[in-house]
Amino acid sequence: PAPTPAPSNPSHFMKGAIIQLATGELKRVEDLQTQDFVRSAEVSGGLKIDSSMVVDIRTSQQRPGLVVLHFTVGEQQSKVTIDVPPEHPFFVFGQGWSSCSPERTAQLYGLACHHLQVGDVCVSITLQQPP
């Protein structure tokens, strides 16, 4: 029997993956910069880039193997919590890709990451509020 593939990881984070910006421009995932996300959100219409600050990082008690990330999002400083695998990369403003486990991110995706820490401000998107 064929070997069972490892649990699927989003291949868009694989080093070399081609990403299409909202401007139509194509870039490799490892070459993306903060401005690429900002500009893409601007031309997308309906989407807004928000600054999401990491305020707490814990290992999940309910779901072993995952980490629980607490963010404050946007000007409202709304609290948002998400569970992710430790290798999941986030894009930090002015710094680039970062994860709770840069070693695992490098193993699984080949993507070079910084260590995600409390106080880091990540790129996230929300729906644009109508004026």
């Binding site: 993956a17 990403i19 299409q20 993306l32 928000d50 709304s78 948002v80 986030f90 998107i125 929300t126």
Partner: peptide
């Protein structure tokens, strides 16, 4: 002529989390 191999292209927004703040206050 060699057909170019099709390479998957992913949209930029698939890379960033969609964090929708909930107004709980």
């Amino acid at each position: 002529n060699v057909e170019p191999r099709s390479v998957p292209v992913f949209p930029w927004h698939s890379l960033v989390p969609f964090l929708a703040p909930t107004q709980s206050d």
